[in-house]
Design a protein around this nucleic acid. Sequence first.
RNA 1: GCCUCGGUAGCUCAGUUGGUAGAGCAAGGGACUGAAAAUCCCUGUGUCGGUGGUUCGAUUCCACUCUGAGGCA
Length: 300
Amino acid sequence: MKKVIVILGPTASGKSDVAMCLAEHMNTQLISADSAQIYRGMDIGTAKPTKEEQTRVMHHMIDIVDVDEPFTVSDFQENAFGIICDLHNYNMSPIIVGGTGLYIHSLVYHLDFTKTQTNHAFRDKMSALIAEKGLDYLYRRLEKKDAGAAARIHPNDEKRIIRALEVLENEGGGERPYDFLKPREDYDFRLFGFNFPREILYDRINQRVDIMMEKGLVGEVKALYETYGSSPVALKAIGYKEIISYLKGDISQEEAVRLIKRNSRHFAKRQITWFKRDKRIIWLDPQEKNCFKNLLSGIE
RNA sequence: GCCUCGGUAGCUCAGUUGGUAGAGCAAGGGACUGAAAAUCCCUGUGUCGGUGGUUCGAUUCCACUCUGAGGCA
């Protein structure tokens, strides 16, 4: 069976460096599974690999769209499998690197996205309905159409309620089977998780945010904000939304930095939660001497 | 040496006219099917500085003591 190596972990876990070393060692290429590095111009705040690094090792799925262009998991799934296929044809074992749980899920599990595409007009309509009649109204509407879906979604989870309705009420929609954790078995996935003890990870995150500021995060965000405004979803990413608040004059720069650090820590925690439940993942601590050796032996 | 004000959750503090305590921040756990760095849910046992006393009962009142800040000598 064709091998696909997956290197995942929370932000600042050092997974990118390891992945690059591994790719060089195996003479193969990387596929980024990172929902923010998809966007052009979002470099510093997403800790995107530098141009030099990208020359050293080919990185796919980076700089795919502009900040105001839509991009979804489904797009990721489709594109990534295309690249996986190409690399296998060249006799390379692709390496997926990233921290976006849903993106990795879309490769490693059997996620069947329905035919119902994003319908922004519909979403806007639903948002307006919420403003008018309250969220329970929409939730009850969902309960009537698909009780199973409603049971799985919390009544406060606005985005999921809207998407569920979008699927039910638009072309190609309808109820869908729910089997979130059905592993894909047509590839030989080798999953490796990188992580540090919590305290060390948090120190690394805090330091990394300081480095981003030194590298000119404010300037990067300012340019994007001036071009695209603050509404694109991409600019809701951590490091971007906080700096935009600062640029608008709502908070001080110190406060923005504090919030970026805090939100990154919370994010890392959520990432860890996401990955914890996949029992196939072999966890490695980058501080350990044999880390890379263990990685290699896990790939054999 | 004397006086005053503090010592309560990881931090900043509130509070109990005596019935063993709660906010903010921080933190922890979880969910996740086309926005996912998004969105959403759950979680507070802490020798109330220490010892003794009064009391049925003390974190609360009293005494002593340790400790921090300020003031007076």
